[in-house]
Design a protein around this nucleic acid. Structure first.
Lengths: 337, 337
DNA sequence: ATTCATCTTCGAACCGGTTCGACTACTTTA
DNA sequence: TAAAGTAGTCGAACCGGTTCGAAGATGAAT
């Protein structure tokens, strides 16, 4: 890597060194066919020798393609979004795109707008929204995005623009499992009410119970954290008028299990607990958690596939929703009659 | 937002519409002082009216500042790195930078090089490396980076270029706690041996035991997962020749606790268990986990602060290492004599 | 009224690529 | 042997900003 003159080499430096015109170098870079093999060899050698890297800004300027896909994510270290983003990154990179991720800490429209502005100001070519609060989508439809976009884990909203596991179905699987075990009084520890996933799971909980002819109990609205699950559990177990709990995610289930231990309630003998997500840890909870598995990697992959199709001008394929899967472990058992 | 002609408006469109020259618009954008307030108002109004956004590629081209900070991360949804990256993103955004994150799935030099190439090809202005395997740093020093960079959670390597919690100290805190409880036979469930954090914790484990005049046992090398912790636990508990376990992270501790339940071993009565990281869930393990807290947000913030200082030409300040904190919970207790 | 300083605006060059029409030299065909 | 075709290369214009020296306007000083 030579650094004569203190300037990073540009395409003209390469051309001069290789004894060709700079357009020829450009041809080599974009592997145009009309280049004599010997010339290409020569140019490539000089490129390597000089440590030349094409300037992405210059390229973006003239092609008006930034190669950037924006990701708007809610600020959290939750397992699901994190896993999806990673899958997105891998898929995007494979397609020659890079990611620009920004996270919003609150879901008020001001901060959403700021996050979106930040991304749009980078001339992103497409957008993935991973912030599944209702407010986000209101803000989204208020601003004209101007690029293809897809929302993740926002079930029931804007079909065709949203990729998600069928949350309602997942919730129904969980509840049905409990019903089949003979439970009739099933509490739901829900996620934040402005999260679409939480809404869909609550909906699934209600409709499955209705179908079984059972009455839903008032949902306890939480914040996805184990800490909340614990405190809610302590409260609920004081007046124990239920035999099963369907938790909105695995973390809350963990907290709830903790509360059960504190209260001396035996799971699953006296109480059945179900989670949601199947985090890698849930198999090792005490007891191992029955939960609903979501394929977060698949979500990410499909998101990029859809965007790439749209960027390529293809019609957006409406694929089947991703099916969740019930994973039965030790935290659920038959209701005691 | 007007869209006449099907082209996004550029600075000249704004100038024409506002009745000024395009250089004046540029002045307004970079809030140069030499602009009459009335002119500024007028220009800003037109900008808003046209929905004009400056083209970052054009700007980057002429200023030769991309505004991008690259992040090279190892592919995982681990709590620590995820949290740090988020802190980095927030801090970078506040400073007017954006992030380009890429993750490498394996730590062989080929894939490291590819990841690094991918980032350097985006003319990043600075680099954060969050892939604390030894191989990464070998590859790093082999390639000339050409931009300021900082490595995270890579203790003991390249001081001044690395931000991390003092892992060795954290491990010593954990082990000292066990020693003070009277434990003499302490097993270490280590992280992968090519991870610098794992090495540092192992080192801390050994030196603290040495100082206490105790002999270290052969470490069990794992992969950070709960699943591994479980399997290792099952093996270890078969021939139970120890009274305490120091786990390299909370997930492995969780798996180990699971194994203890399976084996009918009472924690902390018969066995003490310590984790590392203090994930938000660890307070709700069964039993609540004694662990070592790391401030991942602080790590991210410091990383950006250091890079910004360097980008601004300031000398790199060598700050004190971040101190870890022992969080004592229910999983540790006195050794039975 | 003229000169000069100051404030504000303008013109032109440049950043580092891509692209398209034109040019050259060498084959092929009649 | 002249005309036509073709592979390979080149020149110039352009993308959308920033920057710097120069110019126009305005008002104060002489």
């Amino acid at each position: 890597m030579v650094s004569d003159g203190r300037r990073t080499p540009n395409i003209r430096d390469v051309a001069r060194e290789a004894g060709v015109s700079y357009q020829t170098v450009s041809r080599v870079l974009n592997d145009s066919p009309a280049i004599r093999p010997a010339t290409r060899e020569q140019v490539l050698r000089v490129i390597d020798e000089l440590g030349y890297r094409p300037n992405p800004a210059a390229r973006a300027l003239v092609t008006s393609r930034s190669g950037i896909i924006g990701v708007l994510s809610s600020q959290s270290a939750l397992y699901g979004p994190t896993t999806s983003i990673q899958a997105i990154e891998v898929a995007a990179r494979a397609a020659g795109y890079r990611l620009s991720v920004t996270s919003i800490s609150t879901s008020d429209s001001e901060s959403i707008r700021a996050g979106l502005d930040f991304l749009l100001g980078q001339s992103i070519e497409a957008l993935v929204v991973l912030a599944p609060q209702v407010g986000v989508f209101d803000a989204l439809s208020a601003m004209s995005i101007g690029v293809p976009f897809v929302t993740l884990e926002a079930p029931g909203l804007d079909p065709g623009r949203s990729i998600s596991v069928d949350q309602t179905r997942g919730a129904r699987l969980a509840v049905r499992h409990l019903v089949e075990l003979g439970h009739t009084e099933i509490v739901h520890l829900a996620g934040p009410s402005d999260w679409l996933e939480a809404q869909a799971r609550l909906e699934g909980y209600r409709s499955e119970l209705a179908e079984a002819g059972l009455r839903p109990l008032a949902p306890v609205v939480g914040d996805w954290t184990a800490e909340f699950g614990y405190r809610a559990g302590c409260d609920l177990l004081a007046a124990r008028d239920f035999t099963a709990v369907f938790c909105g995610n695995d973390q809350m289930a963990l907290g709830f299990l903790h509360a059960c231990r504190d209260a001396g309630v035996d799971v699953p003998r006296e109480l059945s607990v179900v989670g949601f997500d199947d985090t890698p840890e849930s198999a090792h909870f005490a007891p191992a958690l029955t939960t609903v598995r979501q394929n977060f990697v698949e979500i990410g992959n499909r998101a990029i596939a859809l965007l790439l199709a749209e960027l390529g001008g293809e019609s957006t394929l409406d694929s089947d929703p991703i099916a969740p899967e019930l994973i039965v472990r030790a935290s659920t058992g038959p209701a005691r009659s």
